[in-house]
Design a protein around this nucleic acid. Sequence first.
RNA 1: GCCGAGGUGGUGGAAUGGUAGACACACGGGACUCAAAAUCCCGCGAUAGCAAUAUCAUGAGGGUUCAAGUCCCUCCCUCGGCACCA
Length: 818
Amino acid sequence: MKSTKTTYNPKKIEAKWQKEWQKNGHPKATGKKGKLYILDMFPYPSGDGLHVGHVENFTATDIAARFKRMNGYDVLHPMGWDAFGLPAENFAIKTGIHPKKKTLECIKNFKRQMESIGLSYDWEREINTSSPEYYKWTQWMFLFLYKNGLAYKKKAKVNWCEACHTVLANEQVIDGKCDRSGDIVFQKDLEQWFFKITDFVEDTRSKSGRKISGLLAGLKKIDWPSSTIAAQKHWIGRSEGAEVIFPVANTEEEIKVFTTRVDTIFGCTYVVIAPEHTLLKSLEASIGNKEEVKKYLEVTKKKTDLERTELNKEKTGVELVGIEAINPFTGERVPVYVADYVLGTYGTGAVMGVPAHDERDFAFAKKYELFIQQSVVSVDKKNETECFTEDGVLIDSGEFTGMTSGDAREKMSAWLRTEKMGGKRVQYRLRDWLISRQRYWGAPIPIIYCDECGEVPVPEKDLPVKLPMDVDFLPTGESPLVRSKSFQKVKCPTCGKKARREADTMDTFVCSSWYYLRFADPNNTKKFADPKELAKYLPVDFYMGGAEHTVLHLLYARFFTKALAKYDYLHFDEPFVKMRHQGMVMAEDGRKMSKSLGNVVNPDAVVQELGADTLRLYEMFMGPLEDMKGWNTGSVIGLRRFLDKVWRLKEKVAQGKTQKSDQDVLTSLLHKTIKKVTEDIEDLKFNTAISMLMILVNAMEKEDVISLHTYQTLLILLAPFAPHITEELWSETGEKKSIFLEKWPKWDVKKIVEELSVIAVQINGKVRATFAIATGSTEAVVKKVALADPKVQVYTAGKEIRKMIYIQDKILSLVIGD
RNA sequence: GCCGAGGUGGUGGAAUGGUAGACACACGGGACUCAAAAUCCCGCGAUAGCAAUAUCAUGAGGGUUCAAGUCCCUCCCUCGGCACCA
């Protein structure tokens, strides 16, 4: 081997190996241990390029992928682009540059950056959600759901800005105002497409009879961060309660109320319906204060959901004069209010007001001077002036008096059932998924409207419905696709008469809800993926991405998986078996990195200055993968120094392959390092794996000569972390094949055990002495040596030893008397 | 308010209930050099001491244990998510 003195020049060697990998692909040993699918959440290719958070995420999975390949697995590790979305469209509105052009530019830049840090993706599987080859299958997914009754249309509210003539995404509404014009945002009703995600909350069966776990129960069988599981659960928001029918006095109408506290119903002193409630229309004639109610509805219309749901805000409402509801339990008549603290979209859109036992009802009753009636007490609390929201024992509740709240809920629900006035009911917070967007840069919804035939799905053979290029994307109030002549020139697939296309596009979350399936077979033109390929690679074994996707993306992806599984397109019902989130990388000043604060660290600059391997190592060394971390430019140099040391080690390698064996101490340390690095990579504890490699390198540096075997083993252990330098040094040892075709080393337990162990002697809980003794010494021997130790004798002289605990090769703990 | 994750030197962090502070950055001292950079060596939680060493120390306070950063209880603080969900 050459031992000429050269300096580590990352720029040169990184370029060299990247060129090689681009030309011949990333070297992969043939996997014999079976498949592993290691996936990153694919990025939106923004104009800002890769940020250091991406680098953290992608480096972590790259280490895992390289490590698993060297351990004999057939690893699928693909990358693609979540390329539809608002930023490119807004950029187009501002500059006139077409979103397609801009998006392709951004992708090119992202890919360049990824290659510049040596990520070993299967680039031949690259996908782009904005390409017709991909969105053809997004449209196919829509039709699949449509045909199975899982996609439907209904009226729904959208954020509407009158000044911009456009629909806004929730993120564009700041404090109830448009983020661009500053105008107040209205809620406007529009016909929208929905996916029936709520159909999959509970377990179901596939058409072939297999059990498909629901969105709720499925959480039990996956290895995800507990916070993410909790967030999913909360988002689904299952609550058990009762539905109660309050007939409206002197009419045929009734108000259905949902409550989790039916046990407090004897304390109900009024009923509230949401401003959206249909009863307001059907009862209009009987309302005594129509004008006042109308005014109130006008005011609430101006509020966004965000505003309406702001806590600690005074509750407002208007009584419906002349309307009374009848409590089915007591027969009492109670007033009816309309108030916007009740949401039309949750439950039945109506609640019973029990001020004595609910905070909101209490506040509302105080404001409108409504009667407060206690119906439940706890054992130790009685007749407080505050409201009492816990369970207790019922009072003044007719035949239910004396029951505990829990019992009463059961009995009262049963009573409602027999009386046909309601009964037990399960309610979810989760709503169906609104997927329509009045936007241009998205996948067109494959539906055609015909005056004769109505709503007609585009036949599969006509897919993809291509996004037209002749579109003026300036906002005018309707979907940009309405004004595309080429797009709207269409005949009804059923009758052949002139028809028009659905002009809305799909939410970009639709595209990203199934992409992990496409990677199994990305170039298939007949199916979204061949079942054989799906069976080979899916589900995803390890999924990694930002915590900002804890709810929506993951929930939607799980929904798609379950829907496809139900119709036997898939053999599994949870897409991501194990998942982790990388912690956010904060700026040096402790704040979030953002362009406006000017504190963004550009990975390109770090690669340029210190090299890609240094950047990769630093990001992994910063701290635990899942923790939030602060970038520290000064600390990056430490990792470069480490690589410089590794580089210089080659000068110490013994010439000739069999010439030298190392000191036992170094061999022992090498085996400890193999163990530690192997186990730490498995556990994603990259920071401590790197520490251990540093310890080994520091020890090797102190030797005059090291064996080729030890040196090569070090290079293999370091290879997943720093692929360029290790590939270079490996080839310099005379190896012809890539280091990534090497087998991962195994540790020898016998070599790890040291001859001597240091025993700490604790006396009454404090360490008073330490001494070295042959590993494996018996308790009796250790005790004898310890008691002979003068430092120990200072404490034991003339005292009684009451107790003695010996931990093999570690600690001797003595408890002595006075 | 609810749910989740945390709180360890100047800094990032390490520690199957078993000698707290590995590894790294910064800092101080020294070697090499005409000088600087690079590199190498030594030191580096606090207090007292020339030192050996002693005492204190993992957000605060209790508890369990021979032994607690780690387990249990109460409280404080920080971060993340959700929030009038009936």
